[in-house]
Structure formats: C-alpha cells, structure tokens
Design a protein around this nucleic acid. Sequence first.
DNA 1: ATCGCCCATGCAAACGTTTACATTCCGCCG
DNA 2: CGGCGGAATGTAAACGTTTGCATGGGCGAT
Lengths: 358, 358
Amino acid sequence: MAVTIKDVAREANVSVASVSRALNGSANVMEVTRQRILGVAEKLRYVPHSAARSLITRRTQTVGALLPDLFGEFFSELIRGIDLAARARGLHLLVSSSHGNPSEAAKALRSMQGRVDGVLVMSPHVDARFLTEHLSEGLPAVLINTVAHTNKYPTLNIDNYGGALSMTRHLLAGGYESIAFVGGPDGNFDASERLRGFNDAIAESETPVRSRVLCGDFTEESGYRLAKKLHAAGTLPRAVFAANDTMAIGMLLALNESGVRVPDDVALAGFDDIPIARFVNPPLTTVRVRIADLGRCALEELAVELDIATPGEAIDDKPSCYIVVRASCGSANQSAAVSGDVGSSASKKEIEIPGRRV
Amino acid sequence: MAVTIKDVAREANVSVASVSRALNGSANVMEVTRQRILGVAEKLRYVPHSAARSLITRRTQTVGALLPDLFGEFFSELIRGIDLAARARGLHLLVSSSHGNPSEAAKALRSMQGRVDGVLVMSPHVDARFLTEHLSEGLPAVLINTVAHTNKYPTLNIDNYGGALSMTRHLLAGGYESIAFVGGPDGNFDASERLRGFNDAIAESETPVRSRVLCGDFTEESGYRLAKKLHAAGTLPRAVFAANDTMAIGMLLALNESGVRVPDDVALAGFDDIPIARFVNPPLTTVRVRIADLGRCALEELAVELDIATPGEAIDDKPSCYIVVRASCGSANQSAAVSGDVGSSASKKEIEIPGRRV
DNA sequence: ATCGCCCATGCAAACGTTTACATTCCGCCG
DNA sequence: CGGCGGAATGTAAACGTTTGCATGGGCGAT
C-alpha cells in the first residue's frame, strides 16, 4: 500500500498527471507511454488509493444497501441479485442489514452518508418522513418494496397485485365455485396489494363465484386457527388462497389433522414460495417472487439515478411473479394446458406459469 | 454534503483544528467550546467526509467480506453474524459474494484493496498461494472455513470434526451395531474433517461395531443412488450418517420409496441442519452449525487483527456445533436422558445436544 | 522558411481531513 | 513584578489523487 502514483511516475519517468491519465480515461497520452506506465504500475503492484480518488472525484464507486431483519432465502437472493448487478457495473456494495427498528435504520443510513454514491433502501420503517429526515438531500436512492409513496425516489415493488391476480385467475379457471382469501396484517402493504389482486380477479370473473375474505396475520398459527374454525363451522370453501405460504401451511396442518383432503376437498394456494412450500404434504401451489431479480432491478434503477447506466440498454421491467403449481390445488389438467414446456429447473411435479406483468 | 469542517469552524468562530478535536478525541478543548461546536455541527447537519478522513488516517472503518456462491440460510446467517458484530464495533461491511471461480474471487479481492481495513475471506478456492498472490502484504485477514494451512492468517472453521464425532457417538450410544458414513467429494475440507470425526468416534468405541465408509459427493442424487444400491444389495447398515443433509435427504427419499422404514429399519443422520431437514418425513436428525456465530467470531477475530478489540473482553471460542435429534434416528430414549431441559426454541419433537467443543 | 496549431506532457491547485507545531493567554511561583 | 509552564486554540503541512492550465515541440499551411 506504500506504493503511490508518484512512485509509478518516478519509475516510468513521467509526471503523476500522465500516470493518472494513462490509468484512467484515454485522454491524450501516447500509446507507447501508456504501455510503459501500465507496465510499471503492474510491476509495482500499484493500486490507486480509493479515498484520495474519492476525495477529488466525489464518487465512491460504492452503493449502500439498507435492509431490515431478513431471514433465509429472501435475504440471500436479494443480496445476490444486487451484488451481481453491482459487480457488473464495477460498483462496490456496502451492506447494513438486520435493522429491527427505525432508529437503528436511521443511524445506519446516516453513517453511510458520504461513503456511498447511492443507496438501496428496504425497510418496513420507511415512510416519507423517515426519508426526508434521514436521507441527505443529494443522495440518490431507490426504495425496495416499501409503502412510502413518494415520487422523489424510484420505488420497486414485488408484483403483489399481479401475482395475486394471476393466482386467483388460476383458481377460477380450476372451476372452484367458492374461494376464500386469507389476508395479512392490517396496514401491511404486501398484504393489501395481494388482496386487491384477489378482489379484481374475482370481480372480472364471468362465471359466478362465492368469495370471502378472512383475516389472518401472516403467521402459521393464524392459518391453523382459521382452518380449524372454518372446519368446525362447516363453512370451508372449495379453494383457499392465503396471502402468504406461512399461513397456507398452517391451514394445511389443520386440514390434515381434521381429515380434510387437500386438494380433493379443499384446494390450497399460498404466496411467496418459501423453501418449505415444496416439502409439505401435499406440496403447496404458490406464487414465486424472483427475488434476485428484484435486487438486480433495484440496482439497475439506482445506476440510472447515478447516471452511469449505459444509455443503450433498456432497464428491465419490474421483477415479476411466477405461479408455481404443485399438488395442493388440483388443477393439473388445465395447468398442463397452460404450460407445456416446463422450465428445466422445475421438478417433475411442478409447473410454472408466468405471472401477468403489470 | 456541501457542508465541510470549514463551514462548521466559521460558524462556530473557531479553527478547523478545534472542530476536528471537538468531534473526535477529547484532546484539550474547553467544554463550552466543544458544546458550541457540537451544536453548530448538528445544526448544519455536518457529516465528516469519510474519504478525506481515510486519506489521512489511513483507516477506512470498513471490513470486507469475500464469499463464495452461497445459497439460502447459510449465507444469510453468516452475513447477519458479521454485520451485527461489525455494527457493534462501528465498522462498515463491504460485501462481495457469489464468486464461482478463483479469478473472480481474486479480482474482487484486489478491488477491495485500499477500501477496507481488513477482510474476511471464505472461499473454496483459497489456498496459500492464492493468498500470497492476491492479498496485499499488510492487509489483515481472517479466513473462514478454508483449507489453506497458513499461520499467517487466523482461520476459523466450523467444528466439523467435533460435530461428526459427537453425532457418531450419539449413534453409537443408540446401540446400532453397524454404521455407515457417507462421505463428501474428494478434497473437500469439510467432508474430510467430518470423516475424521466419524472414524475417531468409531475407533474409541468400546463395544464392537461394524463401520464402513461410502463415497458420496454432497448431492441429493448421490445419496439417492447409494441408498438404492445398498438396498438392492441387501447391505443396508442399521444406521447411516451422511456427511451432509442433502445426501441424507436423497437417501431418505430412496429408502421411503423402497419401503424401508426410517428409523425402524435404518436410522439416518445428516450434517448442517438445512431448513428442509425438519420438514422431511421423518424429520432428520442432524448436526447444526451456528452460522451466525461463525460470522460473529470471524469478525471479532479480525477486530483483534486490527487492534481495535477491547483488550478486556475475551474473544469467543470457535463457533460450535449442536446435535439436533429428530425422528430419523430412533434414540428418543437416551436423547431424553441427555437433555431434560429442552431449549425454548426447539419444537416439541426436537432435542438439542451441545456438541463437543474442540 | 516561418508561423501557428495541436498534441503530449508537466506543473500545481484543489479536495476535506488530521495533527505536529506554533502561538497566545493566564495564573503561579520565585 | 517578571518569567515560566501549561492549557486552549490557531496555522499549516500532509495524505494521494484528478484536472485546468501552461509549456514545448513537431508538423502542416501559407
């Protein structure tokens, strides 16, 4: 680390300016000189001092990712997507995760100030006030899956609406005459969007269908309780679409216990495609979110904000959802019709149906 | 970001030096002056320019994490552990993951040069040569779960040996008279350590036991094939300890298909406690690694290298393994004896046994 | 052949800190 | 009463780059 641009300059018999020029832009420097400089730099294992560079260029070549307390696959995939996209653009990735409360997140956000050129923010605690409060004026940011309605920053969301719409249509196409939707916690953005998708799909249905909406809270227990209650009351619908897999699995447990057959008596579908979904019995039909895609798109969007996106290439659309049809809803007949060519990654008993893009 | 230390100095009617002193160390500055300066800094929302600071202090307050292509929970947990520990120390975390090959990892490592004070390296491609080649001389580093034998850098490993030893002892205590170990790929460090643990446990056994070692490659398919082969040959042992859960689950699939009862006919154990392990039928007995702990320990170790560890506090021991007893090996009787007090996080049907610390 | 222009290169300022050293001021002791 | 020491504060150098501007030399045009 002791070797600086001056050392290279001296060794190559040029000025520091020429070294800088040779290494960076191709601003006028004779090819032979450039080669000599590059050679010396290589030989000396010169690596530019990024802090010094940042000081003058006011760029850090780094983006920050502010994430909530995420577990398992979701976190991994999100970071993977972000990381790969960042690397492709030559950007570094500064991560700050596991923020359980707003003040922690705020502190982390502030401490990133000046270390990053832009920031990806995903946090349940983010609202407009939080942002104006803690996000410094000039810092480009992209919001991920957040409820904050602001046109100040681009926002990327999982296509909750589209996914729920597609899944509900799928169930409707299965011919179930009564369908229940199990919602998530009040005020949860994902949950309300999924409900909206469900309602719209029901509304557009041409064949009459009895639908109802039940209140869950995204926990397995709430699913379990609801299923037990419905069974006890004898009011089980023919199909249930739970707003997340966790609740669906809770219901599945209860139904199995009660001797209700899935999908023969009740078809069941979830949302998220959590890893366990394919291992429950029967495997759960669900909506899969392409999480790595979400991360990648977010970073690309941020690149646009940073004015480093290549103008030519089109920035990807919002990350989409896929319906993954497994045994928990008995529509093997028509799903086969939808998708003859099954993706190679899908197991033999799985069928993927691209979700509607919104 | 336009507000610099000069602005604060001017506004507070002091020199930049005093501002610097007031904000950093408590080097002689009158309390009243300090308060005034702090007030002004707050009012102006001054945040020090980290690049400028790094330039002169030659510290970045950032550590890098170089990780291979990790999936799911392992990655999440590792980062979580690192992130939390780093935050506790006021360090930032620069992540570069998903490196599939040595040259990518090397590039990433070099590009971190100068942006970090130290680096956590976890990569299957890391050996001594790789390190001397690509890790700049003065950069502190801690190796995670790597085979590189070097006393130049501290190395943290999962306690593969101890975990396998404990699990094998557990099986031996279950009274199985024949036990097979299914190994991992040749040259894989984890795999060979686990095998070593198995062998040592067998060797120390007082009651005679027939043991054999089979060759797997960590894939589900290899487990599946092996189990089918053993069953066809009629050479199934009473207990099988697979070097990872993935293979164990492959075997479980095959055994279930063949009508072999687990654990009644064959007891089965794995290693890793991947999320699915508890959802297969029967749930898999396995060795759990405290991955977040691994990350935390690695960062603490790095802090020591960086001379920023508080001298008083003892650095934690190496991260340990836990045996998680589930239904796939039928030793409910004696495992209950081992652990009467089950951790609150364990489900009703799970028993945790602390692994041997090495 | 002379003049001007452009290209390659060098010089030096600037970026925002920290910190060694200089200065000032005050109180205390001789 | 004068000098001295120490605490509070100021001054300026240094960190390693990038980049606007200056310089010089070669070459084409007149």
